[in-house]
């Protein structure tokens, strides 16, 4: 059920539901080397979205070269959404299509960012645990994974960062001038507003890729 359009109509208050302006990020905190037992690890908070990422490897692939790509490292991504992550407690199954797509997106993003050719016949596995879910899931996962990979010392072309952006619906008064872009959507905004997640390299490179999602 859409919220009243006035919530997005910034000309009145210029503030969003959570008090941010249209171009403001949520509070961002991050730590690396949080898990001593992993090769690399990170913990990232984007507002109320909290993500823990650990990296294992590169190590010899399980199944001994069963994977097709022999010349380069394969990036294995497991995303685990904790049952308590959302507003209502529910189990997200392993076969969830949304999660599978998320894993594939992250895997392909890092396959092109890491120097996978340096590690033939090997697998690097990223475990991403979503501890708290409040929007920008893909962006937070990518950012946390980048930090964990830097911590692990895996050579990469560039660091990969991601953020979401959305566009508010027109207020219905006609001209469409009142549609406003929004940066870093939270969970409730994500359910109401079409949005896109953009991942990009840092200073050294151009766009790495983008993945999207919309209502």
């Amino acid at each position: 059920m859409p919220l009243p359009p006035s919530i997005y109509h910034l000309s009145s208050s210029h503030l969003r539901l959570d008090g941010r302006r249209w171009n403001e990020l949520r509070r961002l905190t991050a730590q690396i080397s949080t898990q001593a037992s992993a090769d690399g690890s990170s913990y990232l908070e984007m507002g109320n979205t909290k993500v823990l990422c650990t990296v294992t490897g590169p190590s010899e692939g399980k199944g001994g070269g069963r994977r097709g790509d022999e010349d380069s490292m394969s990036v294995d991504v497991r995303v685990n959404v904790a049952g308590f992550a959302g507003m209502d407690r529910k189990r997200v199954g392993r076969g969830d299509r949304r999660i599978t797509e998320l894993q594939n997106t992250i895997s392909s993003a890092f396959s092109s960012t890491l120097f996978t050719h340096l590690y033939p016949h090997s697998t690097i596995s990223l475990q991403i645990h979503i501890l708290s879910l409040d929007g920008s899931l893909l962006a937070a996962s990518l950012n946390a994974a980048t930090l964990a990979l830097i911590d692990a010392g895996v050579p990469m072309r560039d660091y990969l960062v991601a953020c979401t952006a959305g566009l508010t619906p027109p207020s219905g008064r006609g001209d469409g001038d009142d549609m406003d872009p929004l940066l870093d959507l939270n969970g409730s905004e994500e359910t109401e507003v079409p949005f896109l997640t953009v991942g990009t390299g840092g200073a050294g490179g151009g766009d790495v890729g983008g993945g999207g999602g919309w209502v």
Binding site: I150, P155, D158, G202, A203, G204, G205, G206
Partner: peptide
């Protein structure tokens, strides 16, 4: 340095371990 940070022109230096030439 962090991954992706430009360190110097390749006309003056050669890349050693832990570095790479810019993709573009």
């Amino acid at each position: 340095a962090y991954p992706g940070l430009p360190l110097g022109p390749s006309s003056l230096y050669t890349p050693g371990p832990g570095t790479h030439l810019s993709p573009s």
